[in-house]
Design a protein around this nucleic acid. Sequence first.
DNA 1: TCCAAAACAGGGTGACTGTCCTGTTTGGAT
DNA 2: ATCCAAACAGGACAGTCACCCTGTTTTGGA
Lengths: 200, 200
Amino acid sequence: MTSMERARRRRTNDPEGLRQKVLDAAEHAFQVRGYHATSLGDLMQAAGVTGGALHHHFPTKKAIGLAVINERVAQAVEETWIGPVVSAASAREGVSGVFAAVAGELERQGFVRGCPLNNLAHELSLADPEFRAALARIFADWQAAIASKVRTDQGEGREDHRTDPDRYAAMAVATYSGAMSMAKASQDTAVLRLCAEAML
Amino acid sequence: MTSMERARRRRTNDPEGLRQKVLDAAEHAFQVRGYHATSLGDLMQAAGVTGGALHHHFPTKKAIGLAVINERVAQAVEETWIGPVVSAASAREGVSGVFAAVAGELERQGFVRGCPLNNLAHELSLADPEFRAALARIFADWQAAIASKVRTDQGEGREDHRTDPDRYAAMAVATYSGAMSMAKASQDTAVLRLCAEAML
DNA sequence: TCCAAAACAGGGTGACTGTCCTGTTTGGAT
DNA sequence: ATCCAAACAGGACAGTCACCCTGTTTTGGA
């Protein structure tokens, strides 16, 4: 007992790695079960981390939530939305393309877990001002990136000048968020496909 | 003490009224704080009901959730969406009108608490199959009502035949749901106004 | 009037939750 | 080699949660 424990008792401190393991588990759990429905015990088990370590890196559950929003959700929006749209041939092609790409990805994995931003936004934006501010900022950046792309298109003659960039951006973000909500509730990506056509 | 208590100790059984009081409190609390963040104690206090009475009408918390979805949320969608759209001059005017009406109402009360259906859909559709089925059905009925109105418009020459009724309906529901999410996170109805224009 | 069933009161219970505390171990600076 | 702050372990803690149980009151029909 002593020998066995001593044999594998080699602890290697890796604060950043441990922190990321916690955020990995939290990002996934908050997505699937939600923030309130996820206990710190769940996170400890999923991440393979003790209570002491968890409390050392995140003094409160709220701190974990904020870290997930600011470090993970923001990054997810950047990677799956802002990046592809900016580098697309046009705003409309970029937006429609993301709709289709996400629909395809969801069909491939056969399960719709919803939009990370939207999921947390619904549960937390009224619960705490800090949560709300962090979530609203991501929505705003997302919209701004699309509107900026539309303006670039207009400047280079790829988009009708009658299109209001802010209106198109608002529509794109709103439609995507709502379509993901519906896809999550119905577990069917048909709505995403229909909206992909409409946003072209 | 005995006399005072005896004096106001007249209990009048009103099972349906008590049930509705619980649902009133639950509908409001689930909307503002969410399902998981609302305890049965919160509901007992808000509704002025004892634990025994609560348990008599709703054996589990899930039963309260299902009743709120099936009796209250479905009715809310019917009243604020399906009714107005059906009796509007056209589907587009009806849809755009509801966007504007809701935006106006929210600006009047100065606070955005989100769409009842969407709020519960996000928190509960992955948590339990029964919840998910109930929520998906409301989404489906909502969509079907709008699509049907578009078809009527087309039959009577008020709408271009190139418009796909199902696509327009999906867009309307998705855009509204998403715009409400954004309005809730930003506490700003600007997105709703922009989408109202776009859905005309 | 009587009585059974429904409606309600109110407290108890075990499980769980988020937080914190006290020790022990690690790693880098000296 | 030594030392100290950071990193981590593991459990204690008070509070809360959903659910259930027992007893009392009300109600409507016989």
